[in-house]
Amino acid sequence: MTEIVVISGKGGTGKTSLTAAFAALAPAELVVADCDVDAADMHLLMQPVTVHSEPFFSGQEAFIDPLRCSNCGECEAVCRFDAILDGVDGMKIDPVACEGCGYCARVCPENAIVMSDAEVGTWQHSRTRMGSPMAHARLDIGADNSGKLVTQVRTEARKLAAEYKRDLILVDGPPGVGCPVVAALSGADYVVLVTEPTVSGIHDLRRVHELVRKFRIPCGCIINKYDLNPVKTDEIKTYLLEGGIDHLADLPYDTGFTTAMTLGRTIVETDQKHLVHTVENAWESIVHYSRSERETV
């Protein structure tokens, strides 16, 4: 099984638009996994029908038993997150403010505070409108994405791949370089870095590539909106060459991407021939490199 993870470090480089386009190119061959769960939006283009959904628990939350609570206020005094509300009907926990540290439960003289696993969202098995199995998740407002949830979505994608006999998993990865990204990268076969010729685009490309290099995962790069800043694009190309990163494609800035998005379509489902062609070539290169480099590692 080959697992391809698309990441960008910086947001707004076109990572999800491109991942969705790739998913639309080979729907019969792959499983889609949306691990960008902080702001999961791939479903807007994939329009999946959910066939299975389960709650996701992460961290803890406090609950005050009103029958035991004596309203002494000791919990309120120690809470660093101002999550204890002293209302007319007694002490209550503000579930959004509560970080689940458990300090209140520890100091409560009445043992009235119970810590329990917090349900922070759901994960799903779905089928995209193109017919691919898809693993994704939905987090409740204020809940954090985490390595745990990314690992869960990837595990579900692997199960789907085995069940539907697909040997390719395409992962829309999380942003940044932290815990969720580490969880998305470890064990992956190939990484696609999507960047843009801006100061922050290059900066974040370097940061995230440092992590990929540390994990010794072969990777390639797509320079999106390359024509916005030729000097920065050259800088990226030099970086790719020096770092041994496969140069997969240069895509121009084109409002066709936005137009397609507002119609709920991917770029390859439009009549923008030149863009479709470039994206198709990029996908072919990705599949080629992900398979060939795996054999030589």
Partner: peptide, 9 residues
Amino acid sequence: SVNAAHGAG
């Protein structure tokens, strides 16, 4: 570690 939200490493 598998079940930790953060700090699994």
